[in-house]
């Protein structure tokens, strides 16, 4: 798209103009490679631009709210919780969230164990259930540090764990995707499933946050 103006008045008027913003930064080598590959696949008729757009739209429609529903159901229904811990794919599918190509494994926080998830090699994440990972999850800093000094990283997220709590860092190095099943906050006995799901945050399902305050 051209950035040129086609109106013919001079730019000596005094209303404030935002400075023109170039709409793209300089692409990296791999971004250029990916764009070239996409264009070639479209040109050769393997995929269509509409299919690419539909795929992105579908991806973007998956949000942490899906995972929150799984967590809330597991809190309320011990049999569902057992099924979730036994077979994450089947338990997610039960609630209408199909997971394809990877194996979903739920890891449960307890009063003496806290779980946190990373992919040190790239950005593996339970995308079928939680949507796209946050930018920090893909950053080199998080990936390198959470296996090296996990408690310091959690502290930066406002999460303080006592030394009595064993910290378990899950490095997603293969076909397994991990979902942290956070502890149900105290004082929520009266809440129904929908209200409980509303309490469950993305970060608690990655394991960098707690739901009942910042310390344990």
């Amino acid at each position: 798209m051209s950035g040129h103006h086609h109106h013919d008045h001079d730019h000596d008027h005094d209303h404030p103009h935002a400075p023109p913003q170039p709409d793209d930064k300089v692409h990296s080598y791999h971004q250029i490679l990916s764009i070239a590959l996409k264009e070639l696949l479209i040109e050769k008729g393997v995929i269509t631009a509409a299919e690419v757009r539909q795929f992105i739209e579908k991806r973007d429609s998956i949000t942490p709210a899906n995972g929150a529903k799984v967590v809330a159901r597991a809190w309320l229904d011990p049999a569902y919780r057992a099924r979730l811990l036994e077979d994450g794919n089947a338990a997610a599918a039960e609630l209408g969230f199909p997971i394809t190509g990877t194996k979903l494994v739920a890891v449960e926080n307890t009063s003496d164990t806290h779980n946190v998830v990373v992919c040190t090699l790239c950005s593996c994440y339970p995308r079928d259930l939680l949507g796209l990972p946050p930018a920090w999850y893909k950053s080199r800093a998080y990936r390198a540090r959470v296996v090296r000094e996990p408690r310091a990283v959690l502290r930066e997220f406002g999460t303080e764990l006592s030394d009595d709590v064993a910290l378990r860092v899950h490095d997603s190095t293969a076909d397994i995707r991990f979902l942290v099943l956070p502890q149900r906050p105290v004082g929520t006995d009266a809440l129904d499933e929908e209200a409980l799901a509303a309490l469950v945050t993305r970060d608690s399902m990655i394991g960098v946050a707690l739901l009942d305050g910042g310390a344990r």
Partner: peptide, 19 residues
């Protein structure tokens, strides 16, 4: 964690799991 990082600062209970 203490087997991976000799100077590990966290709890001795801390572990890293990988597939």
């Amino acid at each position: 964690a203490a087997d991976l990082w000799p100077d590990y600062q966290g709890s001795q209970k801390d572990v890293i799991e990988a597939d």
